[in-house]
Amino acid sequence: MSDPAFDADEARRARNRRIEGVARWALPLLVVLLTLWAWDWFSNSTQTRGLIFPEPAKVWARLLADRELLFGSLLVTLRITFLALGIAVMGGVLLAILFTQSRFAELVFFPYAVVLQVTPIVSIAPLIFIYVQDPLARVLICAWIVAFFPILSNTTLGLKSTDRNLVDLYAIYGASWWQRLLYLQLPSSLPYFLGGLRIAGGLALIGAIVAEYVAGISGSASGLAFRILEASYRLNYPRMFAALILIAVVGVLIFAATSFLSWLLLRKWHESALGRES
C-alpha cells in the first residue's frame, strides 16, 4: 500500500474488479446448483414422490434414454425455426426497404403488418390449418407471422434514422438510390436490424412451438412440442421435462448466436458493442 502510484481508492477498485471477475461465472453457477437441489428436494418431499414432478436425475436419465427420439424432434423444430427466421428476415427487410422508399407503400401496408402482429398466433393458427394443407408450410406460416414483425419494425426504424447530412452528401455526389441504400441506409440500419433479429430468433422458436401445439396430435410434424403433448397423454412426465429443457436450451442458444453475430458485426464501430473506455 506504500506504493504512491497505487492509492487506497485504486486498490479497492482493483479488488472489486477481481471479485467481479470470479463472481461473473461463479454466482450464476451457484444459483443453478441451488435450483437443482431445491427441485430435487421438492419432488422428493411431495406425497407423489416424484411421480408427477420427477427429480432432475430422472429427467436427465430420460433425456439420455430418449435421445434419438428427442433429438430427431429437436431437428424438426430447429428446421422450422430457422426456415421461419430466414423468411422473416428476407420478408421483413424487403418490406422495410419498400416502406422507406415509398411513403405510400408504408401507409397502405403498415396497418396489415400491425394487425398480423397484435392478433395472437394461437387464434390465427387453426384457420391457417384449415386452409393450408402442406404440413411444413402451415407451421412455417405461423412461425413467420410471429417472427417477421420485429425485423420489419426495427429495420424500418433503422433505415429512417440515417444521418440527414450523409443523405445530403450522397445527393450532392449524385448517388443513385441503389447506392444510397447499399452503402448508406443498410449499414446504418444494421444495429437496429440486429436488435430485431435477436427478438425474432426467440419468437420464431415460439411460433414453431405454438404451431406444433395447435397442429396437435393429428399434426404430421413431430417436433418437440408434439413430443411434450404426446408424453403428457402417456403420463411420461420425465420426457415432458426433458423436451421442455431442450426447447429452453435451444432458445438460449439462438439468443446467444444472434448476440454473437451482433457483436461480430458491430464491434468495430457501434456504441452498443464497445466496452466502456476507462
Binding site: 447530412n165 450532392i172 449524385g174 452503402y183 448508406l184 449499414p187 468495430k268
Partner: peptide
C-alpha cells in the same frame, strides 16, 4: 459529378467505415 465537395458543421462520417474508406466515398459513388 464531383464538381462540388462539401464539409458540414458535423464531420458527417460513416461510423462503420475506416478513415480511408470514408475518404473513398466520392470516388466510390462514381
Amino acid at each position: 459529378r464531383g464538381d462540388i465537395g462539401v464539409v458540414f458543421q458535423e464531420p458527417t462520417l460513416m461510423p462503420w467505415a475506416t478513415v480511408a474508406r470514408n475518404v473513398w466515398l466520392p470516388f466510390r459513388l462514381r
